[in-house]
Write a protein that binds this DNA or RNA. Structure first.
Length: 408
DNA sequence: AAGATCATCAACCGCGTTGGC
DNA sequence: GGCCAACGCGGTTGATGATCT
């Protein structure tokens, strides 16, 4: 079918928004909510197409947007999630509260990607570009790379499924509150603006076999290596529900200062407890500091160190579990081979962002509360703990509820 | 000081998905 | 089930400011 133009191009303004236009859009949305974006420009008296209005609102005018430099913690989150999710900026953005997908995408393209490239890391695969480092004589590494890709796909699917569940259950549980809020005239809240969920079945949907395999792998790992998740939280078995073994998202009451559109209808925001980071990056660490750390990688010694670490971390062929998966919707027919500890890319972002020895050591004591620093930050011999922590980090990130995203 | 080049990021474009009819 | 409008996402562009020569 032919695609209809998003708006009538004739007579519509393009290009940068003027303060007057911003004011009009803001005033209209604050009073009426955005409603239908297509109809908004006319109602608001703007010579713009609805798409342009939506973009302006979501990327710039929305009151719950944090602007300015990215913190080290945010950088780390982006890199980790990009390694897992690829260019799924909106998915990444759901884990960075107050940042828009556009902003993250721009930041990746203009900063992080370049840094990785400079370091000889392929920003797409997050692996060293040197073929010798990637490929092994038996070709196992490329297989692993493929598996990694599949795992990312699965995890993405799982993330989406779980996000839906969380969103739906949250909406159900707070339906009374929402009803009250929705009764207030006109204002479209982020929650209400998003597509209303269908009635939630009383039982969790049957998870995909591949997702069970994923969970199974995790449980197995937890059993063999220690049943504790991060922060001493026991890794729960998967059983029949979809609860993630690492879902430990905590919620706090929304800050009272939260701007109107974001706060109405949203009583809480997810707090991501960063494994190995919490406490060390207080959000105030600015990019300059990060730049310094990054610059360290221009140094060949450290670069080699990094590559070595990466190479080690990529060799997740050791201690492999073979997991034969019967997949209804299999992407491939080979048995999935996953390192028992999921130890790919372990230490990757740590090396990227915490390579400065003095910083990492001080960070470590911060993170570990000055206590068990060897285990906490990888004293060198605790590979298992490293791997577990790394996976906890990523899984915790992807498990944190995207349903709270201010995006709509 | 002026032009060239680079870096940044807001905004646009087009495609895929979703949901209502 | 098919059609279509609307939305959302990701890639790309272009304007602007900063830096270099």
């Amino acid at each position: 079918m032919g695609r209809s133009p998003c708006c009538d191009k004739v007579g519509l303004k393009k290009g940068p928004w003027t303060p007057e236009e911003d004011q009009k859009l803001l005033a209209y949305i604050e009073e009426h909510g955005h409603g239908s974006w297509r109809a908004l420009p006319i109602k608001a008296g703007l010579q713009r197409c609805g798409k342009s209005c939506r973009l302006r609102w979501t990327n710039y005018l929305r009151p719950d947007i944090k602007r300015g430099k990215f913190t080290l913690q945010e950088e780390q989150t982006i890199i980790q999630l990009h390694a897992l999710l690829g260019n799924r900026w909106s998915a990444i953005a759901t884990h960075l509260p107050k940042r828009t997908d556009n902003e993250i995408k721009n930041y990746w393209n203009t900063h992080l990607k370049k840094r990785l490239t400079k370091m000889g890391i392929d920003p797409v695969t997050h692996k060293p570009k040197t073929d010798s480092l990637i490929s092994s004589p038996d070709g196992g590494q490329s297989k692993n790379a493929a598996n990694l890709s599949h795992m990312a796909q699965w995890e993405s699917a799982r993330l989406e499924a779980e996000a839906r569940l969380v969103r739906e259950s949250k909406l159900r549980s707070s339906s009374l509150i929402h009803q009250q809020q929705l009764n207030s005239p006109g204002f479209i809240t982020p929650a209400s603006a998003s597509a209303p969920p269908p009635p939630l079945p009383s039982l969790p949907p049957r998870s995909l076999d591949v997702l069970n395999a994923w969970h199974g792998m995790w449980s197995k790992s937890a059993e063999s290596g220690g049943a504790e998740g991060r922060n001493g939280v026991p890794v729960t078995g998967i059983g029949g529900d979809l609860e993630s073994p690492t879902s430990t998202v905590s919620y706090i009451e929304n800050a009272s200062g939260m701007a109107s559109a974001a706060s109405v209808g949203e009583s809480s925001i997810p707090i991501i407890d960063f494994v190995g980071n919490s406490g060390s990056c207080d959000g105030g660490t600015m990019k300059e500091e990060g730049e310094e750390n990054w610059k360290g990688f221009g140094n060949s010694t450290e670069s080699a160190e990094y590559k070595e670490g990466l190479e080690n971390s990529m060799s997740f062929t050791s201690g492999i579990h073979d997991i034969s998966i019967s997949m209804e919707n299999a992407w491939h027919t080979e048995p999935l081979r996953i390192g028992n500890n999921g130890q790919f890319m372990e230490g990757f972002t740590d090396l990227l962002l915490n390579n400065s020895s003095d910083r990492s050591s001080s960070d470590c004591s911060d993170r570990c509360g000055g206590g068990d620093s060897e285990n906490c930050c990888g004293g060198g011999s605790e590979d298992y703990e490293d791997n577990k922590n790394y996976w906890n980090t990523i899984l915790n990130l992807v498990n944190s509820s995207p349903s709270d995203s201010p995006m709509f």
